[in-house]
Design a protein around this nucleic acid. Structure first.
Lengths: 125, 125
DNA sequence: GACACTGTCCTACATGCGTAGTAGCATCAC
DNA sequence: GTGATGCTACTACGCATGTAGGACAGTGTC
């Protein structure tokens, strides 16, 4: 009775996010990006996390003369989609509408966002 | 440099969800509800999970003559809200709009849902 | 070619989580 | 009151995760 597929763990996601922002980079690059975000892990910690991400196929790496360069393989959209689906299943009891209402109410949307959303809904209806 | 507050772990959430559905119940009640959902943990597993949920304040229990009765203390809304916020921060880079669009597109909404949502957006605009 | 860097690999270790067994206390049925 | 039942408390164990140290290898520099 295996559990459902696991989410990318928090620390690994942090690293993957750094790669999304920079596009690609070496361990040292990623470390720098994490520092800019106020995190200060050891160099080898980042190395370990990138290794785990690679093992599960979330990043690839290519051997460059100097150091390995890592690139994201799993997109932000992909991860967001998975988490949203899980959220709908687990906390919305399969209904997306309540969560959408919650999101709309709790977060400030720009007028442009609202227009775009209304337009989309209009087409759906 | 402690990590951010942790989410309720998957197995514990499963148990909490059972309590949300039943309103309250004994370990055995929760076990029954989980079975209805197709899960088959051991009795003591459920006991352990309820204990952990209680330790973190997500459920309370009161001693009844027969067995302890557990009640949810953390609401579904609360958990949904926390996860959505986290999602917006981590995967939306602070912007809710892209996630909302994603949700609207990926899930079937009833006509009534769409109307309600459009109405809400109209007021916001 | 010996040294200083820089990078990777391997190993480790504390804690969290998923899962459950066992012992012991309370209670019910006679 | 004695056995059968049911409930809780305590303990355990393996794998995941967060974090990192130490060994070892490639490369540039005199």
């Amino acid at each position: 009775m295996p559990m459902e597929e696991r989410d990318i763990p928090a620390a690994e996601l942090e690293v993957l996010r750094a790669l999304w922002r920079t596009g690609s980079g070496t361990v040292r690059d990623v470390l720098g990006e994490l520092r800019r975000q106020g995190r200060h892990p050891a160099y080898t910690t980042v190395l370990t996390l990138l290794g785990r991400l690679e093992k599960r196929g979330h990043v690839t790496r290519s051997k460059e003369p100097a150091a390995h360069v890592y690139r994201p393989r799993t997109s932000r959209q992909r991860v967001a989609r998975d988490r949203l689906d899980r959220l709908v299943r687990q906390l919305g009891e399969g209904q997306a509408a309540p969560l959408i209402l919650e999101l709309v109410q709790a977060h400030k949307l720009s007028v442009a966002d609202i227009r775009q959303l209304r337009e989309l809904l209009g087409r759906l209806e």
